[in-house]
Amino acid sequence: MPESTDPRELPGADPHTGNRKVDPVTGYETTGHDWGGITELNTAFPKLVIWALVLTFLYSVITWILLPAWPTGRDYTRGLLGLDQGVEAVKGFRDLAAGRQDWMSHFTGENFAALQSDTGLMAAALPAAERLFADNCAACHGVSGQGGPGFPVLSDGYWMWSGDPEAIAETIRFGINSDHPDTRFAKMPAFDWMERSDRSALAQLVADLPNGPVKRHSPAAALFANNCASCHGENGSGGLETGAPSLTDGSVIYGQDEQTVLNTITHGRHGVMPSWADRLSDAQINLLALYVAQLSELSNEVAQ
């Protein structure tokens, strides 16, 4: 539009007089308006702002050219770099995996004894195992394998199945009572059909077990031999690799006070250890097995 020459119509001029006031501090003119005492200066537009706008716009244009940016209806501009964040992420993930291949690859094999004795390798691997254990297992077994309410201790050297890394790896891979088809299975049956007095007697006996071996020939001992020994062993020491815990060493899962044992006998137990086959790689599982296997050695060393 053609610029008017009437001073009253110029931006910032007082509409009646065409005059602008001058602010004594800055020396700039005001726009001539007054909103209940508020005025504005007609300060020239700072060049810096224009430059900043141009600069950030340039940055944006370059980015739009390089990266996916503008939708075009049913498609979008892909950008010269042709990036896809999913592909990038998988690539980055593979790079990470490749970066630890030099030591990680050893753990895909199953020669656990050889791995265990390779101290250099284990030194590189153990921090990784520790973190894996903390993120995946510690919620149940405690950060140092000390167990939890309903979850077995892994650091005391007593095993329901076996302390042998191969067997541990199998436990981790398939779980116990998990929904994996190859899961280990271990169930403490419910003895709710048994007389209550008999159950109480058994409970008393089991609660006493850590204090010494079973007194033979007592009625409770007979009950134990007939009903329990098949899984927990003659004297309750477990170790039959059936998943039945030892009842003599005080390192039980659920507690060994009379009340808890009575509960266990009455209702049975069916603890679940999840399967990790779909979540962790074979190498990670084997590594964890070795880590778990040496947890008890570590805690023995601490105790000494």
Binding site: A138, A139, C140, G148, P149, G150, G271, V272, M273, P274
Partner: peptide, 23 residues
């Protein structure tokens, strides 16, 4: 997002009732 199957039902029950009893 990937939680399903990571822990057992029992663990969830305990954790929800008292998180500090397990962690």
């Amino acid at each position: 997002a990937r939680l399903g199957g990571k822990y057992s039902d029992d663990w969830h029950v305990q954790h929800l009732i008292d998180p500090r009893s397990v962690v």
